[in-house]
Structure formats: C-alpha cells, structure tokens
Amino acid sequence: MPQDITWHGVIQATLKANDVRLITYVPDRVFTPLITSLHGDSDFTTFPCTREEEAVGINTGAWMGGMRSAVLMQTSGFGTIANALASLVVPSQIPLLMFVSERGVFGEFNLGQAMVCRTMRPVLDSLGIVHHTATRLDELEFIVDRSIRQAVATQAPVCFILSPLLTGGKVFRH
C-alpha cells in the first residue's frame, strides 16, 4: 500500500462515505491522530464526553433523531458501558458504531489495562454484539465499510477493536 495511507485516514474516509457525521469520544493516546483529524474536518461534529456511557447515550439519541454517529474509546472505557449496552443499545436495536483502541496486549505495561482487556470480548459475546479485531491496513476499509452497512441494515451495534498490530499501540518508554 502507498506510504501515505494510514489506519486513521481510512477510518475517517469510510465514516464519511457512510454518512456518519457525529463523533463522540473519551480521549485515548492511540486515537490522537484520528481525533485531531476529525476535529479539523467540518463534515463531522466531533466532541469529547466525560464518560463512555454518556457518549453511548448521545449516539443513541442521535440515531433516533436520524443522524449516524460513532464513538471512540479505549479498552478500559469499554469496561464501563456494559449496562448501557445491555439495557439501552441492544434491546432498543440501536446500530451503535464503536471503535475501541485495544490496550492490554502486545507489551502492555499496566496490569489494570491487561485485566480489563480480558473482559471486553466476553461482554461483547455475551450480548451477541458483532465485533471485529482489525489487525491489517489492507483489510480495514472492507471491515469497517461492510460492517457499518450491516449494522444499519440489521439495526444492531458493532464494535471495531483496533489492535496494536494495526495502530502500533501504546509503547512503554523509559
């Protein structure tokens, strides 16, 4: 692939192509280039929230009002939204688009991150939420584009887990 193609550029372009216009997030180091670029793109309304479940509520309201949206969070943030998913998103059939930057694997230095990471896929699986772990740049557009279409068509949430294999992750430096 050409050197100027980046994972965050692909995600931004694919969101735009699918008419996703609202981005809520709780900040994350890995997501910084995506968040910065989204803030600078007037096709998107982008803002931070104080908690991930607050963002889930906002995106649910936006969907019901006719606007597509996505939420960005890190693995530990996902650990706080099980109830919002189980009691609002899943039973109401909301096609919530979640992007999670994966912490807790491949050289994680924080035991807390390593622990909460283990809860993520079991929570998604127990709620029957479709999730994909993106590891390769050449597959990313296909995964995100097709999954957004499926989420909307089937009125079901989807979670994109962005592996350090794709993003580089967060590296411990002395």
Partner: peptide, 12 residues
Amino acid sequence: LAIPIALGVAIA
C-alpha cells in the same frame, strides 16, 4: 442517560 440521549436528539 436521559440527558445524553436528549442531547443526541437535539444535535440530530
């Protein structure tokens, strides 16, 4: 989440 949901509707 009532206020966050309402905020989302208001934005949309």
